[in-house]
Design a binder for these strands. Structure first.
Length: 915
RNA sequence: GGGCGAUUAGCUCAGUUGGGAGAGCAAUGCCCUUACAAGGCAUGGGUCACUGGUUCAAGUCCAGUAUCGCCCA
């Protein structure tokens, strides 16, 4: 083996090898009884993977590789999403750079351009996934606009339409005036912003009186249909039913009463604009008010209202209207006011409630079974508390606006004739058949919300509506791994559509991962300039390159300076390369529940070191085995039995943690076992055992067996390094195996669990740790051999001494162990205890008396604290009577053993003091 | 306003049926011991946010408070 661990080389080798050998294929072990399937949440096709993706992909890959190792027929389904609005925006921006719009080139040409862009940039994600070692079945890769998936979209749309669950109607929707499209509630982000509250005087017809209405959007007054007051508001009861001369227009509007009005807010009078506010719209319905649309598609004032404002932008109009009102003495006052401003999640432009014809899914009937599926446990959220969020939303779910006035996406399969009749069909031919020969038809211009096709992902990728073998084999899938941010967008809709169309839940478990944040706990975002590219952690990146990466193509170039400084402070030397395995191990180790993750580079470094440790330990093992035949039947030493016993415990825990999706505990368990049990103890124990002919063969066999199982156990987390070491092991033993990936995951061997061995090792470790402690505290170099006496020896101590003297001498670097009888006079010594047995290291020339006395005092003090604790409990009458007998007895035992130790050490202290 | 989560060592975090406070990193001391200095050995460091309750026993269960964060309206 190479002397140093070089992740770059290893990873490059297996990336292609695994795929060439077709090892990720879901057909490989199709004789298996069990199937296991994970659907990759399809990332935006033209995007790139961020840390959150890498994190989730690692989790999915660990689960996938584990189940593959278990022999299940395993499918991890990859693919990408066409991401309608996001992708269209990217290409529109490219056109804008050339000074043209999509309208200049037309629909067909524009879509062609997007396909081009998809072909060019769509490889980014897949190549990133390959770098991460994601073992998806690439042969089954899908794209949401693939033919098969589009067929599924049509079929679902048509059926829902025929069942009355999809309808078209003129409704108030969230309108993005920059994109010129409707968006769903979920795509609108409302944030608090500083604005103003304008108080306007509305004159009451035929009187000198006015009503003062307060609004945050004065320009909407052009579309007012009424002024509302609370029916119980005595200030205004006498106005109800009268009319107002709406300023700046020639309209009269009525004064109405409605419970909805908040008497406390503003003046208690509210202007009602049904066409431009969701609440006003509802009130308008209740009172039969006119719905007066005053805006154009790009949020300019239209010509519905004859006024000087026609053609003005909404915000210019606002200024002008305020000025004009003021000029007419109709502006009472302007107050500063914080309000919630709705903005589009893509464009960040202010969203307008806007009356348009749109397509909707009637969700209530679909939501019911979806709620039940979680309620009755067919679907489990992990961690569980997310089901509250889910129920909360599902119980208040609104109809889903699915039409988008953009070009990139699944075109709505509906046609219109000149009378406005709608024909929903799979194709123009079918629509024509419905409409009859000779009727002129035109297809709906709109496309579907991206999430409509994503919602079908779990079954459309498996071939639905065809009843494919894959569909029956892999549906319902096992677990969905995703972030909380798309529970509503995606998860809920998959459940609804899965139940409706595939006849079962789409997945049994939903593992909601935490969010990866930067080292300061800030959300990673391009605008903050704190994003990390997972590939940069794998390959490393210089400070200069990182600075360029973080500041180029920014929406707000003024942030560049701050980002530069921040980056320089955080990564003064750039980022070193850690390799994929280290990064994956880090993600696994951070995957606990219920909290966001502050990503700490130091952790990656630590796990890189772990990989290095594994590498070197393997090198040691292979060196010690080279040239010998491995006798797997050789008799085993206690050390061998011990490590094998510990290995079984490790396997039990790994399985348990994996079943619970606790990858953090799983990786911790393995880290602990490999580093501390296998490397720190067993490898050290093996050194003396390997030079003894009676123990050599058993030790060699055990070294190899445990290493091999370690590799298999770790493989799901760190596939590259384990595969490489495995290959080296196979070469050594002339074993023929194509890949660690196809090796069976090791089962727990109950007959190898040995409490006897664990107890003896406990004794051995206490002995060695005691000597090390004396060395450490007395600054005796580990290379200096020490004489050693033991006294007060029980039968079992004697047995251990007889068996393990060689190992003891080696690991504790002892010159010789001499036994003393109880009455023998011991030399002046430093002392530690192994149970009742005393270990004495003579002071002569090595150890300072005062230092040893201080050390003993410290030990005794520690023990005294414990004694006080135990005695306190046992002196408590209530404890004796209330606690279970076993607990009381355990407490008693602990007290006795502590008291004995104190007595022994005190005697020793006295002796030393008297010298 | 409603809901959820967090608060444990200097830092990042484990601690799942309530029963002697843990890890990694950082710090300190000693060691270039033939697998590994990306290492070994040892050491120090915590009123488990606060207040009350249940219990023989609370980091863990219950109620409330504070601070921070997220989601929904």
């Amino acid at each position: 083996m190479e002397k140093t661990y070089n992740p770059e080389q290893i990873e490059a080798k297996y990336r292609s090898l695994w795929e060439d050998k077709n090892l990720f294929s879901s057909d490989l072990n199709s004789t298996s009884e069990n199937a296991y399937c994970i659907m990759l949440p399809p990332p935006n096709v033209t995007g790139s993977l961020h840390m959150g993706h890498a994190f989730q992909h690692t989790i999915m890959d660990v689960l996938t590789r584990y189940h593959r190792g278990k022999g299940d027929q395993t499918l991890w389904q990859p693919g990408t999403d066409h991401a309608g609005i996001a992708t269209q925006m990217v290409v529109e921006r490219q056109l804008a750079a050339q000074g043209i719009t999509r309208h200049d080139i037309g629909r067909e040409k524009f879509i062609e351009k997007i396909w081009d862009w998809k072909e060019r940039s769509g490889g980014t994600i897949t190549s990133q996934m390959r770098r991460l070692g994601a073992s998806v079945d690439w042969e089954r890769e899908r794209f949401t606009m693939d033919e098969g998936l589009s067929d599924a979209v049509h079929k679902v749309f048509i059926q829902l339409y025929n069942e009355g669950l999809i309808y078209r109607g003129k409704r108030l929707v969230n309108w993005d005036p920059v994109l010129h499209t409707a968006v769903s509630d979920l795509e609108v982000i409302s944030t608090e912003e500083q604005g103003s509250l304008w108080h306007m005087r509305y004159p009451i017809t035929g009187t000198d009186e006015v009503m003062v209405v307060a609004t945050t959007r004065p320009e909407t007054m052009l579309g007012d249909s009424a002024v509302a007051v609370h029916p119980d508001d005595e200030r205004y009861t006498h106005f109800i039913g009268k009319t107002i001369d709406l300023p700046l227009t020639d309209r009269k509007i009525t004064i109405i009463a409605d419970d909805y009005v908040d008497m406390e807010f503003g003046t208690g009078c509210v202007k009602i604009t049904p066409a431009h506010d969701f609440n006003d719209y509802e009130m308008g319905q209740r009172h039969n008010l006119d719905v007066i649309n005053i805006l154009t598609d790009d949020a300019k004032i239209n010509d519905t209202v004859k006024s000087a404002y026609t053609g003005m932008d909404r915000f210019d109009a606002r200024k002008q209207i305020v000025k004009d009102l003021d000029d007419q003495g109709l502006l009472e006052k302007i107050e500063p006011h914080t309000l919630m401003v709705p903005r589009g999640d893509r464009t960040h432009s202010v969203i307008e409630p806007y009356m348009t014809d749109q397509w909707f899914v009637k969700v209530a009937p679909l939501a019911k079974p979806a709620i039940d599926a979680v309620k009755n446990g067919d679907i489990r959220f992990i961690p569980e508390n997310w089901n509250k969020t889910y129920f909360n939303w599902m119980n208040n779910i609104q109809d889903w606006c699915i039409s988008r006035q953009i070009w990139w996406g699944h075109r709505i399969p509906a046609w219109y004739d000149n009378e406005g009749n709608i024909y929903v069909a799979d194709s123009l031919e079918e629509a024509q058949a419905q409409a009859g020969e000779g009727v002129a038809l035109r297809q709906d211009e709109d496309v579907l919300d991206t999430w409509f096709s994503s919602a079908l992902w779990p079954f459309s990728t498996l071939g639905w509506p065809e009843q494919t073998p894959q569909l029956s084999r892999f549906y319902p899938t096992d677990v969905l791994v995703t972030g909380f941010d798309i529970i509503f967008f995606w998860v809920a809709r998959m459940i609804m559509f899965g139940l409706k169309f595939a006849g079962d839940v789409p997945f049994k478990d939903i593992y909601i991962t935490g969010l990866i944040k930067d080292g300061q706990g800030q959300k990673m975002s391009k605008s903050k300039g704190n994003v990390l590219d997972p590939i940069d952690l794998i390959d490393g990146i210089s400070l200069d390159d990182l600075l360029v990466k973080r500041t180029q193509g920014m929406m707000q170039p003024e942030m560049a300076k701050k980002i530069k400084k921040q980056t320089q402070d955080e990564f003064p030397d750039g980022i070193p390369s850690f390799g994929t395995d280290a990064l994956r191990f880090t993600f696994a180790a951070l995957a606990s529940f219920g909290r966001d993750i502050k990503f700490d580079l130091k952790r990656v470094e630590g796990y890189r070191n772990f990989c290095n440790k594994l590498w070197n330990a393997s090198r040691f093992v292979l060196m010690k085995l080279e040239g010998d035949n491995i006798d797997t039947k050789a008799s085993l030493s206690i050390s061998d039995e011990w490590i094998l016993s510990r290995l079984q415990a490790t396997k039990v825990n790994v399985e348990k943690h994996l079943k619970d999706y606790r990858l953090d505990l799983m990786s911790h368990e393995l880290y602990e076992f490999v580093w501390h049990d296998y490397c720190d103890w067993y490898l050290e124990l093996s050194k003396p055992l390997l030079v003894d002919d009676t123990t050599k063969a058993g030790t060699q066999a055990t070294l190899l067996k445990v290493l091999n199982e370690i590799l298999t156990l770790l493989h799901p987390i760190i596939p590259f390094i384990t595969e490489e070491i495995y290959e080296q092991c196979c070469a050594l033993t002339d074993k023929d195996s194509e890949s660690l990936m196809t090796q069976a995951y090791p089962e727990v061997e109950n007959d190898l669990i040995s409490t006897q061995a664990e107890e003896e090792m406990q004794w051995l470790q206490t002995f060695i740790l005691g000597i090390r402690q004396i060395r450490g505290e007395m600054n005796i170099p580990p290379s200096k051999p020490l004489p050693c006496f033991v006294q007060n020896i029980s039968n079992s101590d004697q047995h251990c001494l007889d068996t393990h003297s060689q190992v003891l001498n080696s690991l504790a670097k002892l010159e010789k162990i001499s036994q003393l009888n109880v009455n023998d006079e011991a030399p002046e010594s430093a002392t530690v205890l192994v149970g009742e047995m005393k270990i004495l290291i003579p002071l002569a020339g090595l150890i300072d008396k005062g230092q040893e006395a201080a050390r003993l005092n410290k030990e005794i003090e520690k023990l005294n604290k414990q004694r006080a604790q135990f005695a306190g409990k046992l002196n408590n009458e209530k404890f004796i009577s209330g606690a279970p007998e076993a607990v009381v007895n355990k407490e008693k035992e602990k007290l006795t053993s502590v008291e004995n130790a104190i007595a022994d050490l005190s005697t020793q202290l006295e002796k030393i003091a008297n010298l």
